[in-house]
């Protein structure tokens, strides 16, 4: 899929662990792992909003389009 999820980059920048982020946004670590690995088919606006709020970033920091 040409949409790349840069969640691990943002987590590294914010020095935050996946487990903490999962707890903050209210999803399981397994689902966060699916999102990080790019296996996810879709992302809900509510989840994206929660991630952006927790990591203090914009959606464009998390998602990238590559051909």
């Amino acid at each position: 899929m040409p949409i790349i999820v840069n969640l691990d980059v943002m987590l590294a920048k914010r020095k935050m662990k996946s487990k903490n982020l999962a707890e903050q946004i209210g999803i399981t670590t397994a689902n966060l792992s699916i999102l990080k690995s790019g296996k996810a088919k879709a992302i809900r606006f509510t989840t994206l909003e929660a991630i952006c709020k927790s990591l203090d970033c914009q959606p464009s920091d998390l998602l990238e389009y590559q051909e």
């Binding site: 999102l35 296996k39 879709a42 992302i43």
Partner: peptide, 8 residues
């Protein structure tokens, strides 16, 4: 269901 399961 598969698509729903992979929607985060």
């Amino acid at each position: 269901k598969k698509e729903n399961d992979l929607t985060i």
